[in-house]
């Protein structure tokens, strides 16, 4: 089987293209692996590695050099920097809410104003996350861009 790699300019253009005569078991495995890699990430809890679904992550938080993924029930440690999370998952509706947090827009219930140009994002688990004034504009632009 030939393997080709073609460079693209933007993250959103990245894709895996399978060219096959028929969808064999091997191709099906590759397809499933590629789909899984895009929607899952490796996270750690009590020293064990887990594959967690990106869509289930409420938000990522950086706490003194470590980044944590907050799910409904568990909090996992992930081996990425917050800016990497922001860049890699911006196509999956994740957006920076403050210097230490990246939130999943699909897990936001609603927004409401806080003080002095800040906003609260009410997450699906009932938690309120502060969107700082610095990033409020970016969140709004992201929402507008996604909604169009």
């Amino acid at each position: 089987m030939k393997v080709s790699i073609r460079k693209v300019e933007k993250k959103e253009q990245e894709q895996v293209l399978l060219e096959c005569v028929s969808m064999t078991k091997e191709f099906e495995d590759i397809r499933e692996y590629a789909l899984m890699k895009g929607n899952q990430l490796t996270a750690y809890l009590d020293g064990k590695a887990y594959q967690i679904l990106l869509g289930d992550v409420l938000y990522f938080e950086a706490v003194s050099e470590h980044v944590f993924a907050y799910m409904e029930e568990e909090v996992y440690h992930i081996k990425k920097r917050l800016y990497e999370v922001e860049q890699e998952y911006s196509g999956q509706k994740f957006v920076r809410a403050s210097k230490s947090m990246v939130i999943n827009l699909m897990q936001v219930e609603s927004f409401r104003p806080a003080l002095n140009g800040r906003f609260y994002a009410r997450m699906k688990n009932g938690e309120d996350i502060i969107i700082s004034r610095q990033y409020a504009k970016a969140v709004k632009q992201k929402l507008l861009g996604e909604a169009i």
């Binding site: 699909m106 927004f111 104003p113 140009g117 709004k140 929402l143 507008l144 996604e146 909604a147």
Partner: peptide, 20 residues
Amino acid sequence: GWLRDGRVAQDMNEQLKKIK
């Protein structure tokens, strides 16, 4: 200021609803 931010939050909620 609060009312101005309230309008922005309302826009954001509408856009959030659309993307969902």
